[in-house]
Computed example of a mutant assay.
Amino acid sequence: MVFRSGLWPEFSFPSPVGVMSNLWAGFRDTSFLIAIAVSLKRVITGYFISLVIGLTLGLTVVRVRYLDENLSPLLLGLQTLPSICWLPLAILWFGIGEDSIIFVIAIGSIFSISMAAVSGIKNVPPLYMRVAKTMGAKGLKAYTTVVIPAALPSIISGMKQGWSFAWRALMAGEMLSPKDGLGYALTVGRDLADMNQVVSVMIIIIVLGLVIDKLIFGRLESSIRYRWGLDRA
Protein backbone atom coordinates (compact mmCIF):
# COMPACT_ATOMS: atom_id res chain seq x y z
CA MET A 1 0.00 0.00 0.00
CA VAL A 2 1.12 3.55 -0.71
CA PHE A 3 0.82 4.68 2.91
CA ARG A 4 3.08 1.77 3.99
CA SER A 5 5.68 2.12 1.26
CA GLY A 6 7.66 4.82 3.02
CA LEU A 7 7.68 7.07 -0.03
CA TRP A 8 5.64 9.71 1.77
CA PRO A 9 5.24 10.46 5.47
CA GLU A 10 1.88 9.51 6.97
CA PHE A 11 0.87 13.12 7.60
CA SER A 12 0.95 13.84 3.84
CA PHE A 13 -0.63 10.56 2.69
CA PRO A 14 -2.88 9.21 5.45
CA SER A 15 -3.93 5.59 5.84
CA PRO A 16 -7.56 4.42 5.53
CA VAL A 17 -7.47 3.39 9.19
CA GLY A 18 -6.43 6.90 10.23
CA VAL A 19 -9.14 8.47 8.11
CA MET A 20 -11.84 6.18 9.49
CA SER A 21 -10.66 6.84 13.04
CA ASN A 22 -10.83 10.58 12.40
CA LEU A 23 -14.34 10.26 10.96
CA TRP A 24 -15.49 8.25 13.96
CA ALA A 25 -13.98 10.74 16.41
CA GLY A 26 -15.47 13.72 14.55
CA PHE A 27 -18.99 12.30 14.57
CA ARG A 28 -18.68 11.04 18.14
CA ASP A 29 -17.81 14.47 19.54
CA THR A 30 -20.36 16.07 17.12
CA SER A 31 -17.75 18.43 15.63
CA PHE A 32 -18.44 17.10 12.13
CA LEU A 33 -22.20 17.24 12.70
CA ILE A 34 -21.95 20.91 13.70
CA ALA A 35 -19.74 21.65 10.68
CA ILE A 36 -22.20 19.92 8.34
CA ALA A 37 -25.18 21.81 9.81
CA VAL A 38 -23.42 25.18 9.51
CA SER A 39 -22.25 24.51 5.95
CA LEU A 40 -25.68 23.28 4.83
CA LYS A 41 -27.33 26.37 6.27
CA ARG A 42 -24.91 28.63 4.40
CA VAL A 43 -25.06 26.81 1.09
CA ILE A 44 -28.87 26.52 1.12
CA THR A 45 -29.22 30.24 1.86
CA GLY A 46 -26.76 31.25 -0.84
CA TYR A 47 -28.17 28.79 -3.36
CA PHE A 48 -31.74 29.98 -2.78
CA ILE A 49 -30.62 33.57 -3.44
CA SER A 50 -28.79 32.50 -6.60
CA LEU A 51 -31.83 30.50 -7.73
CA VAL A 52 -34.18 33.48 -7.43
CA ILE A 53 -31.78 35.96 -9.03
CA GLY A 54 -30.46 33.54 -11.65
CA LEU A 55 -33.86 32.40 -12.93
CA THR A 56 -35.23 35.95 -12.92
CA LEU A 57 -32.18 37.22 -14.79
CA GLY A 58 -32.25 34.38 -17.33
CA LEU A 59 -35.97 34.70 -18.05
CA THR A 60 -35.66 38.47 -18.40
CA VAL A 61 -32.65 38.30 -20.73
CA VAL A 62 -34.26 35.78 -23.07
CA ARG A 63 -37.46 37.84 -23.27
CA VAL A 64 -35.77 41.14 -24.19
CA ARG A 65 -33.76 41.01 -27.41
CA TYR A 66 -31.55 43.97 -26.46
CA LEU A 67 -30.55 42.32 -23.18
CA ASP A 68 -30.01 39.00 -24.92
CA GLU A 69 -27.64 40.51 -27.45
CA ASN A 70 -25.66 42.52 -24.91
CA LEU A 71 -25.82 40.57 -21.64
CA SER A 72 -25.59 36.95 -22.78
CA PRO A 73 -21.86 37.14 -23.64
CA LEU A 74 -21.21 38.86 -20.30
CA LEU A 75 -23.13 36.19 -18.38
CA LEU A 76 -21.19 33.48 -20.18
CA GLY A 77 -17.91 35.16 -19.29
CA LEU A 78 -18.88 35.56 -15.65
CA GLN A 79 -19.94 31.90 -15.53
CA THR A 80 -16.37 30.85 -16.33
CA LEU A 81 -14.92 33.03 -13.58
CA PRO A 82 -13.86 30.91 -10.57
CA SER A 83 -15.79 31.69 -7.38
CA ILE A 84 -12.60 32.32 -5.44
CA CYS A 85 -11.98 35.40 -7.61
CA TRP A 86 -14.94 37.07 -5.86
CA LEU A 87 -13.41 36.61 -2.39
CA PRO A 88 -11.40 39.87 -2.37
CA LEU A 89 -14.50 41.86 -3.34
CA ALA A 90 -16.62 40.01 -0.79
CA ILE A 91 -14.15 40.78 2.00
CA LEU A 92 -13.90 44.41 0.89
CA TRP A 93 -17.68 44.88 0.74
CA PHE A 94 -18.86 42.70 3.64
CA GLY A 95 -15.79 41.91 5.72
CA ILE A 96 -14.82 38.43 6.89
CA GLY A 97 -18.00 36.75 8.08
CA GLU A 98 -21.32 35.21 7.12
CA ASP A 99 -22.32 37.89 4.61
CA SER A 100 -19.18 37.47 2.53
CA ILE A 101 -19.56 33.68 2.48
CA ILE A 102 -23.21 33.92 1.39
CA PHE A 103 -22.25 36.42 -1.30
CA VAL A 104 -19.54 34.16 -2.73
CA ILE A 105 -21.93 31.18 -2.75
CA ALA A 106 -24.69 33.13 -4.49
CA ILE A 107 -22.45 34.79 -7.08
CA GLY A 108 -20.79 31.46 -7.79
CA SER A 109 -23.97 29.83 -9.07
CA ILE A 110 -26.12 32.69 -10.36
CA PHE A 111 -24.65 32.79 -13.84
CA SER A 112 -24.77 29.05 -14.54
CA ILE A 113 -28.46 29.03 -13.60
CA SER A 114 -29.11 32.10 -15.78
CA MET A 115 -27.34 30.62 -18.80
CA ALA A 116 -29.20 27.34 -18.38
CA ALA A 117 -32.53 29.20 -18.43
CA VAL A 118 -31.51 31.19 -21.50
CA SER A 119 -30.23 28.12 -23.35
CA GLY A 120 -33.21 25.98 -22.39
CA ILE A 121 -35.79 28.51 -23.59
CA LYS A 122 -33.92 29.22 -26.82
CA ASN A 123 -33.85 25.50 -27.63
CA VAL A 124 -37.61 25.00 -27.24
CA PRO A 125 -38.87 23.73 -30.64
CA PRO A 126 -40.77 26.49 -32.53
CA LEU A 127 -43.48 23.92 -33.24
CA TYR A 128 -44.57 24.17 -29.59
CA MET A 129 -45.27 27.87 -29.97
CA ARG A 130 -47.18 27.38 -33.19
CA VAL A 131 -49.34 24.72 -31.55
CA ALA A 132 -49.89 26.98 -28.52
CA LYS A 133 -51.03 29.85 -30.76
CA THR A 134 -53.34 27.52 -32.65
CA MET A 135 -54.95 26.55 -29.34
CA GLY A 136 -55.34 30.20 -28.30
CA ALA A 137 -52.34 30.63 -25.99
CA LYS A 138 -50.48 33.83 -26.83
CA GLY A 139 -47.98 36.19 -25.25
CA LEU A 140 -47.25 35.68 -21.57
CA LYS A 141 -49.69 32.78 -21.28
CA ALA A 142 -47.89 30.81 -23.99
CA TYR A 143 -44.59 31.67 -22.35
CA THR A 144 -45.60 30.43 -18.90
CA THR A 145 -47.67 27.41 -19.95
CA VAL A 146 -45.63 26.12 -22.89
CA VAL A 147 -42.14 27.60 -23.22
CA ILE A 148 -40.98 27.48 -19.60
CA PRO A 149 -42.31 23.93 -18.96
CA ALA A 150 -40.65 22.74 -22.18
CA ALA A 151 -37.35 24.29 -21.07
CA LEU A 152 -37.50 22.68 -17.61
CA PRO A 153 -35.11 19.78 -18.40
CA SER A 154 -32.36 22.27 -19.29
CA ILE A 155 -33.25 24.54 -16.38
CA ILE A 156 -33.09 21.62 -13.92
CA SER A 157 -29.67 20.67 -15.31
CA GLY A 158 -28.55 24.26 -14.76
CA MET A 159 -29.87 24.20 -11.21
CA LYS A 160 -27.94 20.99 -10.61
CA GLN A 161 -24.77 22.54 -11.98
CA GLY A 162 -25.40 25.67 -9.93
CA TRP A 163 -25.62 23.55 -6.78
CA SER A 164 -22.20 22.05 -7.46
CA PHE A 165 -20.79 25.54 -8.05
CA ALA A 166 -22.38 26.67 -4.80
CA TRP A 167 -20.60 23.88 -2.89
CA ARG A 168 -17.24 24.86 -4.42
CA ALA A 169 -17.84 28.49 -3.58
CA LEU A 170 -18.81 27.50 -0.03
CA MET A 171 -15.49 25.74 0.51
CA ALA A 172 -13.59 28.75 -0.81
CA GLY A 173 -15.52 31.11 1.46
CA GLU A 174 -15.38 28.95 4.57
CA MET A 175 -11.62 28.60 4.38
CA LEU A 176 -11.58 32.25 5.46
CA SER A 177 -14.27 31.71 8.08
CA PRO A 178 -13.20 32.41 11.68
CA LYS A 179 -15.08 29.35 12.93
CA ASP A 180 -17.32 26.39 12.05
CA GLY A 181 -18.14 24.84 8.71
CA LEU A 182 -16.54 22.10 6.63
CA GLY A 183 -14.23 24.57 4.91
CA TYR A 184 -12.99 25.70 8.30
CA ALA A 185 -12.38 22.06 9.25
CA LEU A 186 -10.30 21.69 6.09
CA THR A 187 -8.24 24.73 7.06
CA VAL A 188 -7.66 23.39 10.56
CA GLY A 189 -6.51 20.07 9.14
CA ARG A 190 -4.12 21.84 6.79
CA ASP A 191 -2.70 24.11 9.50
CA LEU A 192 -2.14 21.15 11.84
CA ALA A 193 -0.77 18.96 9.02
CA ASP A 194 -3.56 16.51 9.87
CA MET A 195 -4.29 14.93 6.51
CA ASN A 196 -6.60 12.42 8.16
CA GLN A 197 -8.97 15.28 8.90
CA VAL A 198 -8.55 16.80 5.46
CA VAL A 199 -9.44 13.53 3.72
CA SER A 200 -12.29 12.93 6.19
CA VAL A 201 -13.86 16.28 5.31
CA MET A 202 -13.40 15.55 1.61
CA ILE A 203 -15.27 12.26 2.05
CA ILE A 204 -18.08 14.02 3.92
CA ILE A 205 -18.41 16.59 1.12
CA ILE A 206 -18.55 13.85 -1.53
CA VAL A 207 -21.17 11.86 0.38
CA LEU A 208 -23.32 14.95 0.98
CA GLY A 209 -23.13 15.83 -2.70
CA LEU A 210 -24.18 12.34 -3.78
CA VAL A 211 -27.04 12.15 -1.27
CA ILE A 212 -28.45 15.56 -2.21
CA ASP A 213 -28.12 14.82 -5.92
CA LYS A 214 -29.88 11.47 -5.52
CA LEU A 215 -32.68 12.59 -3.20
CA ILE A 216 -33.47 16.01 -4.69
CA PHE A 217 -32.05 16.76 -8.13
CA GLY A 218 -32.09 13.16 -9.34
CA ARG A 219 -35.77 12.70 -8.51
CA LEU A 220 -36.71 16.12 -9.86
CA GLU A 221 -34.82 15.56 -13.10
CA SER A 222 -36.29 12.08 -13.53
CA SER A 223 -39.82 13.38 -12.92
CA ILE A 224 -39.42 16.18 -15.49
CA ARG A 225 -37.90 13.86 -18.09
CA TYR A 226 -40.68 11.32 -17.60
CA ARG A 227 -43.36 14.00 -17.89
CA TRP A 228 -41.93 15.12 -21.23
CA GLY A 229 -41.49 11.58 -22.52
CA LEU A 230 -37.69 11.69 -22.37
CA ASP A 231 -37.32 8.84 -19.91
CA ARG A 232 -39.16 5.88 -18.47
CA ALA A 233 -40.48 5.80 -14.89
Results as ranks from 00 to 15, higher is better:
4 R>T: 15
88 P>D: 12
229 G>V: 14
150 A>F: 06
60 T>P: 09
162 G>F: 01
180 D>T: 05
23 L>F: 05
112 S>F: 07
230 L>Y: 14
132 A>M: 03
192 L>D: 09
24 W>D: 00
48 F>Q: 06
134 T>N: 15
169 A>T: 07
222 S>H: 14
137 A>T: 10
171 M>Y: 10
21 S>W: 00
137 A>P: 03
231 D>W: 11
197 Q>P: 00
94 F>I: 14
209 G>E: 08
228 W>Q: 14
12 S>L: 12
181 G>W: 07
92 L>K: 11
87 L>Q: 06
30 T>G: 02
38 V>L: 03
227 R>S: 13
11 F>A: 04
112 S>M: 12
217 F>Y: 13
74 L>T: 11
184 Y>F: 15
217 F>S: 07
92 L>Q: 08
60 T>I: 11
9 P>K: 10
58 G>F: 09
193 A>Y: 10
223 S>G: 02
167 W>E: 02
186 L>K: 05
113 I>P: 13
63 R>I: 02
115 M>F: 05
219 R>N: 09
29 D>E: 13
113 I>C: 02
96 I>M: 07
171 M>W: 02
53 I>K: 09
17 V>L: 11
208 L>A: 08
184 Y>V: 00
214 K>S: 12
100 S>Y: 11
202 M>N: 03
78 L>K: 01
132 A>Q: 05
157 S>G: 13
5 S>C: 06
77 G>V: 05
156 I>L: 14
221 E>V: 06
205 I>P: 00
51 L>W: 04
84 I>K: 00
186 L>N: 07
169 A>R: 07
151 A>K: 01
174 E>R: 08
29 D>I: 04
130 R>M: 10
219 R>I: 03
144 T>R: 12
137 A>I: 01
222 S>T: 11
13 F>L: 13
144 T>N: 02
230 L>K: 10
41 K>R: 14
101 I>Y: 03
142 A>D: 09
108 G>V: 03
63 R>N: 10
152 L>K: 01
154 S>A: 15
138 K>G: 01
24 W>A: 12
106 A>G: 10
166 A>K: 02
149 P>G: 10
112 S>V: 15
215 L>P: 00
141 K>T: 15
116 A>P: 06
134 T>V: 05
117 A>H: 04
21 S>G: 01
166 A>E: 02
188 V>Q: 09
67 L>D: 11
27 F>R: 09
118 V>C: 02
220 L>F: 12
11 F>H: 14
210 L>K: 13
162 G>N: 01
30 T>Y: 12
61 V>S: 07
63 R>M: 10
149 P>W: 07
45 T>S: 13
83 S>H: 08
82 P>T: 04
193 A>S: 13
11 F>G: 01
31 S>N: 05
56 T>G: 15
42 R>F: 03
2 V>W: 08
155 I>L: 04
192 L>N: 12
195 M>N: 10
156 I>E: 08
42 R>Q: 13
212 I>R: 06
91 I>T: 03
162 G>D: 02
79 Q>M: 12
24 W>N: 06
78 L>C: 01
75 L>G: 00
